[in-house]
């Protein structure tokens, strides 16, 4: 059997290298195990939320190589060599302006969907700092909120865009 065809099986113990929130790690898990369960159960990082389990609600959203993916749909082997960012990673250097915008604009009520929302907004703004309203709607179309509604969330995104723009302009002036 060629090396490239060697299976990653549940019997292997240290075979899935990746970066988690900037730290290089090796996942010693069954290769088809869901990233959601690895994060919450194995690594005890419970900021990523479990809800629908089929990629519909967005509560379990994480970034893989800078783009949002549903961790309930992502299998361990699909993370090999990738860079994963969870909500814990977003706030590692203190509260992210996107999180502050959600707080100030009332972009949450129970808060269960909020980590996933924050991840989707961060992925959007990192890629497109000045999105149009349709682009914001598309970016958040995989995140469902079932208690506070979307008005506050949209305001929070607009506020985050403003703050990031102001921060950029301020940096440009000082350069």
């Amino acid at each position: 059997m060629k090396d490239s065809m060697k299976p990653l099986s549940r019997l292997e113990t240290s075979s899935i290298p990746c970066t988690l929130n900037g730290q290089e790690i090796s996942l010693n898990v069954p290769p088809a195990k869901r990233l959601l369960h690895i994060l919450r159960d194995d690594l005890e990082m419970t900021g990523t939320k479990r809800s629908c389990d089929i990629g519909r609600c967005g509560a379990c959203m994480v970034m893989v190589d800078g783009v949002p993916v549903n961790s309930c749909l992502t299998m361990a082997y699909q993370c090999s060599g990738k860079s994963i960012t969870t909500i814990e990673g977003v706030s590692a250097g203190g509260m992210d302006p996107i999180q502050r915008a959600f707080l100030e604009e009332g972009g949450f009520q129970c808060g269960y969907c909020t980590p996933g929302m924050i991840i989707s907004v961060k992925a959007l703004l990192d890629h497109n700092p000045d999105p149009t309203p349709p682009e914001i709607e598309e970016a958040l179309s995989g995140n469902i909120c079932r208690c506070t509604g979307y008005g506050g969330i949209k305001r929070a995104v607009q506020k985050a865009i403003e703050w990031r723009r102001e921060a950029y302009e301020s940096e440009s002036v000082h350069d």
């Binding site: 490239s4 299976p7 099986s9 290769p31 088809a32 869901r34 082997y77």
Partner: peptide, 10 residues
Amino acid sequence: AEAPFVWHPA
């Protein structure tokens, strides 16, 4: 079940 073998053909 979450423990199938995963093959990686090139």
